[in-house]
Design a protein around this nucleic acid. Sequence first.
DNA 1: CGAATTTGACCTGCGC
DNA 2: GCGCAGGTCAAATTCG
Length: 307
Amino acid sequence: MADWGLQAVIRPTQYADHDHHDLFGSIDIENEYDQALLFCSPHLFDQHHDPTVVFTDELDQLYKPFYQIPLPPAADDDSHQDIIIKQEQEIKNFCGSAPRTSQLAQKLKKRKNQQKKVVIEVTADGLSSDPWAWRKYGQKPIKGSIYPRSYYRCSTSKGCTAKRQVEQSCIDSNIYILTYTADHNHPQPTRRNSLAGINRSRFKATPKSSSSSDGDKTVTISKDSAFDSPTTLSVSSFDHEEVLQQPNIKQESEETFFYNKFDNQGHIMMPRVNDEEYMVFSDDFFEGLEDLGGYKMDSSYYDHARS
DNA sequence: CGAATTTGACCTGCGC
DNA sequence: GCGCAGGTCAAATTCG
């Protein structure tokens, strides 16, 4: 089994708009598993905007190529085009030609044995909507965060390798960062069964909301009871199994990044991989996401992105 | 008393 | 090679 890269990051839209933080894109550094995901606030580039933002030169250099430069309102089409071309060239220069020699890029490399990961930011309510039973096996203080990270193993089925990390956001203590690693090797438990393994858990089970999926792979997950607004799913890497089905996906993924745009609400707009495929996640993956929080898949976002 | 949690020790990967 | 940080183990503790 090959190594995996960070696969997806999901966050409530209210925490992913232009006034807060955005996904800026992914950098394909050397291999699939070396892809780095960039979460960043646009205000990182305006040090005067928010004095609470910890800002370093390194972060500045790291994120700046991905910051979407606002187009001047009075500029004509040619000016717009020049800015876009210049911006895309800057991005390409950063992550397309020099990643192997860039110290910054090397610092983005992940541990080699990292497995595929799905990162979700949820509220406290969102923690309770996970249908799986988890058993805590460790807790560690994390550098740079005032909150420790807790480590959980799936206890629904013996031998299941699925793991979950729970970390409270140091930016907003109401937000919990969930990191899911590896797949469950068993069917999803019923709500009743899932409670069996967490009878001492602090979390309560909550009713699962209705969900539907039309099979179209999308980047937006619509309203969930745990959130007050739609949830944005942003994709940073590709499922390896799907990569095997698409020999040119490596090249495609690099191309994918360069065409990332934001819509008028600050959502990242993911491009098509080719005429037939848009996302490379399996249906099971999205079904699993829906099950995590009762999210409802919505294809309208992608339709909007294409228009 | 069994199962889950806590927590310090240990292991591993990575940068310098 | 060394130190740091993240991840895991396992004995002790807690809880129902």
